[in-house]
Amino acid sequence: MSRLTVKVVTPERVLFEGEAASLVAPAWDGKVGVLPSHAPFLTLLGEGEVDVDLVDGGSARHPVSGGVLKVLADEVIVLTESGRPTSSD
């Protein structure tokens, strides 16, 4: 099964890095879901939470406000200014 490599990065540090089955992110115009084999994609983010479904069944949420999400070859990078994790499982 193919997986996504997900990174959530702020100017100060990398908040999250790991393998995921899917993720849902708050784009500027509504939520977008990303699954493996997604087409190359670049979108601005709005306010909300990036919700990452981990491969082991858990999930990780990171609040974001603004920034950008890039998907290329099953690699997802979320660049955002804020993103304290709210829960880990």
Partner: peptide
């Protein structure tokens, strides 16, 4: 052309260049 850009190249750059 290689990427799906949302909202558009100009729209993305308008936000990203200040960052």
């Amino acid at each position: 052309g290689a990427f799906i850009l949302s909202p558009s190249a100009v729209g993305v750059l308008r936000d990203l260049i200040p960052l």
